[in-house]
């Protein structure tokens, strides 16, 4: 479904990603973890063609997209949805119009049908009845959920989530996690989820990839990641002060 081949990305001559190879299979949920500033959002932006890689190829559904024109890219993007890290809601439109936007632009649905989907999607993210509110009246976490309701409205085959549960309370995080899992189970959606919540990562992931220093230093199933021998990975998932703290802790346990 999604395949990155030897991707490198530099901004102003500084390499953020270097030699990334990554594949996401159809119907799979891949969780991407890594320290702040390691290039997780950049990775997602490469996948939807918002950024062109400095080197390497991005394949979406068997098509190499980094050489496509904006109009041809849009044909690929119709099947993709993205939840932005900072929501990126259209602030001149109501919440309802935000969610309805893709449907109005890309389908021939009647307003009544659209209204039904908007109502349902907002209910799914715990925002029933908030159609007529303007985005600037919402809290950060609420915006995030509207962004999610908007992204899934046109039922994309591929969903990219940039920290979908950041800033949400534990109960709401759980709801969003279940939403992501349902999308996969019921609709067979292929997902890439960037998250800092390890519990949520381990719950929803088929596989986990860790980015560090511009490279993917570990990729594998949840079990494989938990068992990883790489101290940097262990430091990250356990939240330790330094990699050596993990090495110390492990030797004490033996």
């Amino acid at each position: 479904m999604i395949k990155l081949e030897k991707i490198s990305m530099s901004f102003h001559g500084k390499y953020i990603l270097q030699g990334i190879d990554l594949e996401v299979k159809k119907g799979e949920t891949l969780v991407v973890i890594g320290p702040s500033g390691s290039g997780k959002s950049t990775l997602l932006r490469l996948m939807v063609g918002l950024l062109k890689p400095t080197q390497g190829e991005v394949w979406i559904k068997g098509q190499e997209i980094s050489h496509l024109s904006e109009d041809n890219l849009n044909k690929v993007r119709i099947g993709m949805g993205m939840v932005f890290q900072y929501s990126a809601l259209f602030d001149s439109m109501t919440v309802g119009d935000n969610v309805a936007f893709g449907l109005r632009e890309h389908t021939t649905m009647t307003e009544a049908e659209i209204h039904k989907i908007v109502t349902r999607n907002l209910r799914m993210v715990g925002l029933a009845g908030q159609q007529d509110v303007m985005p600037n009246e919402l809290s950060g976490g609420m915006k995030k959920r509207v962004s999610l309701a908007r992204a899934i409205a046109i039922r994309p085959e591929i969903m990219l989530y940039d920290e979908p549960t950041a800033g949400l309370d534990p109960i709401m995080s759980g709801t969003i996690d279940r939403l992501i899992m349902n999308a996969k189970r019921v609709l067979g959606v292929t997902s890439v989820v960037v998250t800092h919540h390890m519990s949520s990562a381990f719950k929803i992931a088929d596989r986990v990839a860790m980015i560090h220093g511009g490279r993917i230093i570990e990729v594998g199933t949840v079990e494989q990641i938990k068992q990883s021998e790489n101290p940097v990975v262990q430091q990250f998932i356990l939240g330790l002060k330094s990699p050596s703290a993990y090495v110390r802790r492990r030797s004490e346990m033996r």
């Binding site: 849009n74 993007r77 949805g81 900072y86 990126a88 809601l89 259209f90 001149s92 632009e105």
Partner: peptide, 21 residues
């Protein structure tokens, strides 16, 4: 001002991801 603030809040990117030119 309007388009610029859409740019810095990633609304332009959101348009592009939603396949709008």
């Amino acid at each position: 001002a309007e388009i610029g603030s859409m740019k810095v809040t990633e609304q332009i990117d959101a348009l592009r991801v939603m396949a709008i030119n």
